[in-house]
């Protein structure tokens, strides 16, 4: 992987993977590979998810009852595990999203140049 590539891609912040998975599933059930692909595509390939780390995260969410898993068929007609949000998961997504937005905007405000300072 070249240096250039590394600069344009970002490692995920600790704990944000759970939020991204929940957000991905908000649009409907998906299997593991689909979740990984969606995260990548929707972030314009900026967010890099080590596909392997998806699975421990999914197991954590299952255990906390935020998602459930059903058996289904994948696009190439093979058996696959589809994950979907529970009501609890949906509520958590809303709470986490607004928390994240407040956090992100606070960081953005801190980092953006203050107009007053220039005059």
């Amino acid at each position: 992987m070249s240096t250039e590539e590394q600069e344009s891609q970002l490692e995920l912040l600790q704990g944000t993977l759970d939020l991204l998975i929940l957000q991905t599933l908000a649009f409907g059930p998906a299997h593991g590979h689909a979740i990984a692909r969606i995260i990548q595509q929707r972030s314009d390939e900026v967010l890099q998810v080590g596909h392997g780390s998806l699975y421990p995260a999914l197991q954590r969410l299952l255990k906390r009852g935020l998602i459930v898993a059903d058996d289904g068929l994948s696009e190439n007609n093979r058996k696959a595990r589809f994950y979907r949000l529970t009501a609890k998961g949906r509520k958590r997504l809303t709470a986490e999203t607004s928390k994240w937005e407040r956090f992100a905007s606070a960081i953005a405000r801190m980092l953006s140049p203050v107009p007053d300072q220039n005059s």
Binding site: G52, S53, K63
Partner: peptide, 18 residues
């Protein structure tokens, strides 16, 4: 490559089962 260590992912997943 993209997936990373299967056994590590497996180990950590199972860890989550607690």
């Amino acid at each position: 490559r993209r997936f990373g260590s299967v056994s590590l992912a497996g180990d950590q997943s199972r860890e989550a089962w607690g």
